[in-house]
Design a protein around this nucleic acid. Structure first.
Ligand SMILES: Nc1ncnc2c1ncn2[C@@H]1O[C@H](COP(=O)(O)OP(=O)(O)OP(=O)(O)O)[C@@H](O)[C@H]1O
Length: 983
DNA sequence: AAGACACCTTTTTTT
DNA sequence: AAGGTGTCTT
């Protein structure tokens, strides 16, 4: 057993895993196998030391890290054992203790968790009420900082010196009172109360035999205390961390906790790992050089185990849109030149902030590259989903004033701001909850001092009815009958939620509704009795003799369990992640979200001042570490880039971290030429089989351009800007080049360009290279124009022709020329693209898509993904659904759950970027290029056909009848619709 | 007093 | 794109 655990570890790692020392710190740079060591130690403790899984606590800082950890441990010890570990984020572990032992500190069982919007709303109201200045977000952050320091509102109140501090002290105090009144704990409270509990009742953790913590550099002081308390009986602690990767200072992470730990446990064994198993030498060198700009940092050894490899790329592009186009073209180029050694899964785009994803998503979408988005706006934070969740929260715990306030007038019930404010204050002064006051008012038990007009009274009555009937529903239903789904369906009906969404989001109703469907699907999964029982049982802390413990019941606690998971962002993520890994898709993530993960190819776009380092960041060193973390995610290829103008078209200059003297020497100015030898090296680094030379040559042929030489290295616009002046074009407004996306021109062209002879990478850095490229460009332009005329003639009518909307789009640069060309069969995209608005009025839709209804080819044959969800798509009506289709949603049997589950991943692909689409121009030539149905699912035969992209941009979503969309997929769909819909 | 509509700014990172 | 603000109508 032990040999299995230790077989892939080096000496230092082995020592860390097997050491008899109680307290162990593993301090090591990125990619040195820290997480691997930690998981191996868990396995070792279980197998060799015979610890019981339920006596081991494993803590991480993010949900994703927790899932990743669980997966890795499962590989060692199997699911049966792994699931019994007390493994999770600090917050979720703390929550378990509070749920089960909270009574020892006077905490009821039914407390809720305040999410950030609750907290912010509370603070905002307090500020407004008291006429204080300052922003709610800032005050909220300050409260959190104080809590992390262990200073409660009373302490702060006492030591507040100046007026400003007193003002804040008041906000802090009222905030705490408000939480208490609603029986809510905020994120920090979960940790604080858990600390309190473990101090008051140490027996709670008397069973704990070992504690392990990943990414320890991210601990804040409460978490530090919690660590000591969890381990207080046996003091067996293993932590791994890297001070250079500390990127959570904004939530009070203290790197000092490393030394503090050594002081508290003087026998701490510190082990350093120095070998990097992840990245090529070139990437490590560059990353190392950047982190060493921080002069306060002690020098460290970092030994590459891989070859030097390709130097990372530092690229300048004219605009954010151009950057995105270049990036996508590089993904396609590298995949092709690697002979499909690299697949979409192997690429990641890492961003400083989630909002930067828009340009990238647009470009990926246009090229039909499937992707998934991690981080950013969460599924449960979307307005249409959050509202329903808030209803559920009120049904679960009507004392939650915050949630009541948010839903009391949505949909509009003529209960306005003034009334709510009045009632809220009245309730507060009476010492009752808003809900019970409203209930009394409606049921005539109490006349409010607040003026309530008759129509408002009616509105309140409606509201009360919704909640009461829902509560009844919940109570009357047994665990076996999927209480959550029934409850949610009840609410949706009772609220006429479809109509509400239609009114509120006329342009993007479909997308919003799809999210509601997704929520319903999530609750199906969450209320699967087997699953619930498993969660309750495995989540339960072991019972300890002589210690009173509250247990959870599947029937009664399904709702609150689900809601807690929603707030802690745990709900649905595990499944979504598994699905995300099986489907072939490019990952887009924030850098924070990417910590601990790795990909063969990593892009970090938008490396400009203001983004990295962020303009609002107050610790530049942390920003630098963030860049370092991003860079060290890459195994084989790393691309940094910056647009010279950001998405708001303001001038942007390259990040100061990248303009320091000496940095340039570590980078290439453009993407690498990839020769066959490079592919072999790549295969070796990734420990994969190398494709045959012929396979590589074949896939290379599908590329129009096998060098990264389209965009000038200076960051200027490429030639077609000049072409615009040089050439006279027939008077077709749609042909305006404007900001067109030239990359798309090339990758979409049917005309195969002759390979550029003698055009080496080095010459790409010189101007002449571009001149010759221009000639080829002109050539292609000519041919493409001819082809365009042909296509136009062949098509009775192109949808975009008489739509000013599309024309405007084109002028804005949303893929003009590309629209008129067929992609070569075989590669480039991964499936047909369909995008954008499902929001057009039906008439426009039919106008726009005359061919939509003529489609002969079944949709699922058009793409290379799992066909199951597509069949679901076909069952769905073409017109917007006005009813929840009950069939797929109301089968709570395990098989249906599975179906939905697998659907998730693929639907993901499908909705995120490349929904299936009917053939746009059923012309025989392109039809011949269609894949046969038995080709479906084979990556290599992915075939892309002619399509006017602009048309799809605006219409295809409706035809593609969006399926379940999963967590994190978000904006792809929604953002698009929002865009397509306007104007 | 509530709602509908237009117009404005502002958008870090996570539990 | 969502939240705030301001104006007008009901
Ligand atoms: N002894 C080893 N031999 C071969 N490969 C290893 C070894 N140790 C780790 N690796 C590999 O190195 C990669 C990085 O490992 P891991 O994610 O555990 O590193 P890490 O130190 O946790 O990185 P980070 O600090 O970035 O989270 C993984 O692909 C892992 O499989």
């Amino acid at each position: 057993m032990a040999t299995g655990i230790l077989s892939n570890l080096n000496e230092a790692q082995c020592e860390a895993v097997t050491t008899a020392a109680d307290v162990v710190q593993v301090l090591a740079p990125p990619g040195s196998g820290k997480t691997k060591t930690l998981t191996a130690r868990v396995a070792y403790l279980l197998a060799e030391r015979r610890l019981k899984p339920w006596n081991i606590i494993v803590c991480t800082f993010t949900v994703k890290a927790a899932n990743e950890m669980k997966e890795r441990i499962t590989k060692f010890v199997g699911h049966e054992c792994a699931k019994q570990l007390k493994l999770g984020t600090f917050h979720s572990v703390a929550l378990r203790y509070l749920k089960q032992y909270g009574q020892h500190i006077g905490l009821g069982k039914d407390f809720g968790i305040a999410d950030s919007s609750d907290s912010k709303a509370i603070v905002k109201r307090i500020i407004k009420k008291n006429d204080f200045s300052g922003d709610a977000g800032g005050a909220r952050g300050r409260i959190s900082t104080q809590k992390a320091k262990g200073i409660d509102s009373e302490q702060f109140w006492k030591k507040a010196k100046d007026v400003e501090q007193q003002e804040f002290a008041r906000i802090y105090r009222e905030y705490e009172e408000t939480l208490k009144a609603s029986d809510l704990l905020d994120y920090d409270d979960l940790l604080l109360r858990c600390c309190l509990l473990l101090r008051v009742e140490p027996a709670c953790v008397s069973n704990v035999e070992a504690l392990l913590i990943d990414e320890y550099q991210d601990t804040n002081n409460i978490q530090y205390d919690l660590m000591g308390l969890f381990a207080q009986h046996r003091n067996v602690i293993t932590i791994v961390g890297d001070p250079d990767q500390s990127i959570y200072g904004f939530r009070s992470a203290e790197i000092k906790n490393l030394t503090r730990m050594k002081e508290q446990w003087p026998d701490t064994l510190t082990i350093n790992l120095e070998e990097n198993y992840r990245s090529s030498g070139a990437i490590l060198h560059a990353a190392q050089h950047i982190i060493e700009q921080d002069e306060s940092r002690p020098p460290k050894k970092l030994q590459a185990t891989h070859t030097y490899g390709q130097r990372p790329v530092l690229r300048k592009l004219p605009s954010a849109a151009a950057e995105a186009d270049w990036l996508v073209a590089e993904i396609q180029r590298i995949q092709a030149l690697s002979g499909d050694l690299l697949q979409p899964n192997d690429f990641a785009v890492l961003l400083r902030s989630a909002a930067l994803s828009r340009a990238i998503e647009t470009a990926l979408g246009r090229e039909g590259v499937p992707y998934r988005m991690i981080g950013g706006m969460r599924f449960y934070d979307r307005a249409e989903v959050k509202l329903l969740v808030d209803y559920l929260r009120v049904v679960d715990a009507p004392g939650n004033n915050e949630a009541v306030e948010r839903i009391i007038n949505v949909p509009p019930r003529r209960v306005g701001e003034g009334t709510v404010k009045g009632l809220h204050e009245e309730a507060q002064s009476k010492g009752v909850s808003l809900w019970s006051l409203v209930l009394d008012v409606v049921q005539g038990r109490c006349k409010p001092t607040t003026k309530v007009t008759p129509s408002t009274q009616t509105g309140l009555a409606k509201f009360v009815d919704v909640i009461l009937s829902a509560q009844k529903k919940l109570a009357s239903v047994t665990a076996e009958s999927a209480p959550l789904v029934n409850l949610l369906q009840h609410l949706i009906t009772k609220l006429s939620y479809q109509d509400h969404l239609k009114r509120k989001f006329p342009d993007e109703y479909e997308a919003r509704w799809t999210n509601v469907e997704e929520l319903v699907a999530q609750t199906i999964e969450a209320s699967d009795p087997e699953r619930l029982t498993a969660i309750v049982n495995d989540g339960a802390l072991p019972s300890i003799e002589g210690l009173e413990r509250r247990t959870e019941s599947v029937a009664e606690d399904a709702l609150s369990l689900f809601l807690a998971n929603v707030t802690l962002a745990t709900a649905g993520t595990e499944k979504a992640e598994q699905d995300g890994e099986t489907a072939q898709q490019v990952t887009i993530s924030t850098i924070h979200g990417a910590k601990g993960l790795e990909w063969p190819v990593v892009f970090i776009p938008a490396c400009y001042d203001g983004s990295i380092p962020h303009s609002r960041a107050d610790d530049n060193d942390e920003e630098r570490r963030l860049l370092y973390v991003g860079m060290t995610r890459a195994q084989a290829l790393l691309y940094l880039s910056t647009p010279l103008r950001n998405s708001q078209r303001e001038e942007a200059s390259m990040s100061t971290f990248l303009t320091q003297p000496g940095v340039a020497a570590f980078f290439e100015e453009h993407g690498p030429s990839v020769a066959i030898a490079d592919v072999r090296a790549l295969a070796k680094t990734l420990r994969r089989d190398c494709p045959s030379d012929t396979a590589i040559a074949e896939s290379k042929k599908t590329l129009e351009r096998d060098e990264d030489n389209y965009w000038p290295l200076t960051g200027e616009e490429p030639f077609e800007e000049r072409a615009k002046w040089d050439r006279s074009r027939p008077g077709d407004a749609a042909w305006t080049f404007g900001n067109t996306r030239p990359a798309a021109v090339f990758s979409n062209a049917t005309v195969t360009m002759q390979q550029q002879q003698g055009y080496s990478t080095t010459s790409a850095t010189t101007k002449p290279g571009f001149v010759s490229a221009k000639e080829q460009y002109d050539d292609i332009l000519e041919q493409q124009k001819l082809k365009k005329v042909d296509e136009r003639a062949a098509q009775v009518r192109t949808a975009s022709e008489d739509k000013p909307k599309t024309r405007k789009r084109q002028i804005e640069g949303q893929g003009t020329i590309a629209s008129f060309f067929a992609k070569p069969p075989g590669r480039v995209g991964y499936g047909p693209v369909a995008f954008g608005g499902d929001n057009l009025p039906d008439a426009t839709l039919e106008d726009a898509m005359p061919s939509a209804k003529r489609t002969k080819q079944p949709l699922h044959e058009l793409r290379n993904v799992n066909s199951a969800p597509l069949e679901r798509a076909l069952v769905r009506p073409l017109q917007p659904a006005y009813k929840l289709p009950p069939a797929p949603l109301l089968r709570p049997s395990p098989s249906s759950t599975n179906m939905l589950a697998t659907g998730t991943g693929s639907a993901y692909v499908f909705l995120s970027s490349s929904p299936p689409q009917p053939e746009e121009a059923p012309d025989p030539e392109t039809a011949g290029a269609m894949p046969r149905s038995d080709d479906v699912g084979d990556e290599k035969t992915a075939v892309v056909r002619a399509r006017p992209a602009t048309t799809f941009h605006t219409t295809s979503m409706q035809i593609a009848a969006p399926q379940r969309k999963t967590l994190g997929m978000r904006r792809s769909l929604q953002g698009w619709n929002a865009r397509g819909g306007k104007r």
